[in-house]
Amino acid sequence: MKKYTDQGSKDTRSGFGAGLSELGKTNENVVALCADLTGSLKMGDFKKAHPDRFFQVGIAEANMMGIAAGMTVGGKIPFTGTFANFSTGRVYDQIRQSIAYSDKNVKICASHAGLTLGEDGATHQILEDIGLMKMLPGMTVINPCDYNQTKAATIAIAEHHGPVYLRFGRPKVANFTPEDQKFEIGKAVMLNEGTDVTIIATGHLVWKAIEAGEALAEQNISAEIINIHTIKPLDDEAILKSVAKTGCVVTAEEHQMNGGLGDSVSNLLAREMPTPQEYVAVNDSFGESGKPEDLMVKYGLSTQNIVEAAKKAMGRK
């Protein structure tokens, strides 16, 4: 079993900021828009280095999405930045018509996704955004797991032509992805091979899945751990190959059970390879104020929840 080491916890949003700064130097067509959250989105370095390519739109997210769509006419690659809630639910129709249906090359970059936004509470803790975005035809949906992967994903999506939803978060989490690992959109990352159960995780739940794998190993259970950073398009082949070997699966995500990664996996398995599946996800509920780690425990998104789900899935084989 491969051992992963936290190289020093960092927030994924800082990975986005670092990636955007690098793009500023390497791709002159990249422009950035922000709706009054420059500091929270870590877009300050880009703004400072490229003031002529940074657009402060104020607290007007609908207008921001429209401006971004229009900027693509003439070859710019706009990156929009605001919280996940205001990047999706608030502006769904603008994204649907002006970006997705209009085939515009806009990168919707969303921070503070999920429960780990913490104390601000349920108004800001969107848990439906993956579902909203993956339902749009042509939309790519990416939820990287740590600082290094978020930075790499930010750089990679500039090279991909088409609308992308890039989801990341607020808290510091373990940073373990190798700094030089290439980010391939739509390609699962095999973290640990195993034979008894497949654990498929995305975003902040990936590190917890690694921890769960270690805990299961101590109980002589061999878990295969897969990082699905791209929810759409889903890496069907990697998932089917793993599940064919283990015969059961756990999906783990900081999102509603309805519409999330687990839904995408069960959809695939129902069509191709019906398999017992357990979900680690928020079960049809809004979040609430609290410390991120306390919320993850209360809403069933802890390492222990993944361990229990793995055993339950194995019991259903």
Binding site: V31, D52, R53, F55, A62, N63, M64, M65, G66, I67, A68, A69, G70, M71, T72, V73, G74, G75, K76, P78, D93, Q94, R96, Q97, S98, Y101, S102, K104
Partner: peptide
């Protein structure tokens, strides 16, 4: 641009106008 759901074209036009300036 697609249009039909109302109110979106002015924002899009601003974006295109900014790109033309750039």
């Amino acid at each position: 641009i697609a249009s039909g759901s109302l109110g979106q074209g002015m924002s899009v036009a601003i974006g295109a106008a900014l790109t033309k300036k750039m």
